[in-house]
Design a binder for these strands. Structure first.
Lengths: 199, 199
DNA sequence: TGTACATCAGTGAACGCGCGTTCACTGATGTAC
DNA sequence: TGTACATCAGTGAACGCGCGTTCACTGATGTAC
């Protein structure tokens, strides 16, 4: 489909879409302005109508990647059935989804937390963090989790899943046959114990 | 001191030392062959007498960074006083040292776990991992930690400190006034609970 | 309803730098005799 | 103990590519009258 690309009309969004696809498949290093321009069928300079510099584009892509993570967590949460221990199972589903995202989408995961991407825009994209905090609040509210660990709980949980995610994510670093699912189960169970929850 | 650099005699070690210093201060991105050569007072091509390619040099630097981490953990371990609860206090010291290393030496920490550094040479530099496993074994042996979590313990502990380290390390990502020490205490305490240890 | 004109969003070519790597070379070192 | 020669570890200049960015430009669009 060769339409006139003059006044493309949607170039900003299209560049971001291509960027997201490229980092998904090849990691944050694959974010190259000239390639994105080629993807969109546009000259490299055209991107400068929509982004001051490539770092602004990168920051936006990182934000979108973090958004994907939050979406994956929310989706897992919402797929959890109601019933007995629902708040705990929701919490576990969220944690598992975090690590799963790191394993299944290493490119996005790495992009989401890429160092060197300055400009956190807002105090830090809160969505994923908020999902976690919400789940913890639910558990305290219905008595599943004791209140005494409520304050440290977000960091304790986040550190565990983030660390496991980082370890399992890197294609290079996976120490051969690590059974991913078993590792996730072990770590999630550890977090549950750390939060003082007894089944 | 301008000596003849012909037959420098120690160039390999000196290049690595400069590399280690540069990544310490400016992160893995600061590892540039030409700069290292300049540091050593040598032409860029000279490095090729000692490394096939810059990726081999990078891999070696990453190994050295991981070695620094292991050394920091061992040092903390050995500074722990004997006496009551010694094995637990040693374990905690090791965990704290891991996160401290990430916070105090972000350049090294990032280098140690940099993605894209292929070539793990051995099944994976085991030193730091071994220090952790050793501490866990001690705790099981003297009854401090129940044996039922022994199998999952290394991963549970590692994921927590690695995750927290990653979160606190990145200069860019630290969400302003995070009280680092409190965060470390919280997470270490969480790990202790996760391992079924009651004081 | 048509025309003049400002504005917007592209083009395409080139600039320039950073950086790994190559290549023919040369000075120093060690070893055989 | 000195000389010939292989070998080792450097030099220095250049190559070449990847990549962000700039600049004068031009085609399309919308708006005033």
């Amino acid at each position: 489909v060769t339409e006139s690309h003059y006044h493309h009309g949607n170039l900003r969004a299209e560049l971001l879409a291509h960027a997201l696809r490229r980092v998904r498949e090849h990691g944050p290093g694959a974010l190259v302005l000239r390639d994105l321009a080629k993807d969109a069928g546009v000259s490299p300079a055209a991107a400068y109508r929509h982004f001051d510099t490539i770092d602004h584009l990168r920051a936006e892509v990182a934000r979108l990647a973090r958004q994907e993570l939050a979406a994956a967590m929310l989706s897992a949460r919402n797929r959890t059935s109601r019933g007995r221990n629902a708040s705990l199972r929701r919490f576990e589903a969220i944690g598992r989804a975090y690590v799963r995202f790191a394993v299944d989408e290493p490119g996005w995961f790495e992009t989401a937390f890429a160092k060197g991407t300055v400009l956190p825009t807002t105090p830090e994209d809160p969505a994923a963090w908020d999902v976690l905090v919400g789940a913890l609040n639910e558990m305290v509210a219905d008595g599943t989790m004791p209140a005494r660990y409520r304050e440290s709980a977000p960091l304790v949980a986040w550190a565990s899943v983030h660390g496991l995610g980082a370890l399992l994510s890197s294609t290079t670093q996976r120490p051969d046959g690590t059974p991913v699912d078993a590792a996730i189960d072990d770590v999630v169970a550890g977090v549950v114990r750390a939060l003082g929850i007894s089944r």
